[in-house]
């Protein structure tokens, strides 16, 4: 079949948008990462690899923010995936109650991140917050914490909020994946006398791999982009214990007016996300099966 050349014109609007909102900013960031531009002045100097050198060898807050971000990402990826998967299995049947419950679990996703931050800041308040009050009420006072003020646990409190915020979205992806698994495979497994765990391990999980790949990759990227939630809830504090890379980039660019250095960190950040996502795809792709 001969494809008319006209069809190529249909790519143009998309390409223009892609170039304008993705390629241009990316190339600009790479360019400015080699400068000392303050974001305002028309003049700047090229500083070679100085910004990259500082990020890698001379910036303890950046190193800390990378560590915090990895902790945050691991917590969110593990718990969000597991919780979404468990609830997807429990709610996979298309009954009216399940429709309602799926909608309820999905509900936080449609809220704005600032609203979520506001709600959870109130929940976590050490004296007025509902969480500590609830724990005290049911006799678990010893578990009450300074959830956002204690540097040892603040990052996990934020990560939990992130899980609450997005688990419903991942649940829907898993439910769709579960519905795509042919029912006769479960019948065959039953006839063969497979236990529930064996059925999950040999049928459900391998065939859910494409959905899991999407969920894990998406959750990873989302965890790195959790700027608004962290910024609104802790602003990176106390003492940088919840500083993640995106909030640190904001600090450097818009409070420190060092756009050159912020661009260098952004480029490193982009490379890091690309690398982690690539590894995930490779690992998860190797687990895929087809029957």
């Amino acid at each position: 079949m001969r494809i008319s050349k006209t069809i190529y014109f249909f790519f143009i609007p998309g390409l223009i948008l892609y170039a304008l909102f993705f390629l241009y900013p990316t190339i600009s960031a790479i360019f400015y990462s080699f400068t000392n531009w303050d974001g305002i002045s028309e003049n700047f100097n090229f500083v070679g690899l100085e910004n990259y050198e500082k990020a890698v060898t001379g910036d303890s807050v950046f190193v800390k923010s990378v560590g915090n971000n990895l902790e945050f990402m691991l917590f969110v990826v593990i718990f969000q995936t597991i919780i979404a998967l468990i609830f997807a299995i429990l709610l996979v049947k298309n009954t009216k109650v399940n429709y309602l419950l799926r909608a309820l679990f999905f509900f936080p996703t449609i809220l704005s991140s600032v609203s979520v931050a506001f709600i959870w800041t109130f929940v976590y308040d050490p004296s007025l917050g509902i969480l500590n009050q609830l724990l005290s009420l049911i006799g678990l006072e010893f578990l009450t914490q300074n959830w956002l003020g204690n540097g040892n646990i603040a990052i996990y409190s934020l990560a939990f909020t992130q899980v609450w915020f997005h688990a419903g979205q991942m649940l829907i992806i898993f439910v769709a994946g579960l519905h795509a698994i042919p029912f006769d495979l479960y019948e065959a497994a039953k006839i063969e006398g497979a236990t529930k765990w064996q059925t999950f391990k040999k049928v459900t999980w391998p065939l859910l791999a494409p959905s899991a790949t999407i969920v894990i990759a998406y959750t990873t990227i989302q965890s790195f982009q959790a700027f608004d939630l962290v910024f609104a809830m802790t602003g990176g504090g106390p003492n940088n214990t919840t500083e993640i890379i995106s909030t640190y980039i904001y600090e450097i660019a818009f409070r420190g007016y060092d756009f050159g250095y912020a661009s260098a960190i952004s480029v490193l950040f982009m490379a890091m996300i690309a690398l982690i996502t690539f590894i995930q795809f490779k690992v998860l792709r190797s687990n895929r099966v087809s029957y």
């Binding site: 800041t121 050490p126 004296s127 300074n146 106390p238």
Partner: peptide, 12 residues
Amino acid sequence: FQEDALGTNQDS
């Protein structure tokens, strides 16, 4: 300062 001062915001 009150207990858990680092977790208290200005409204509280």
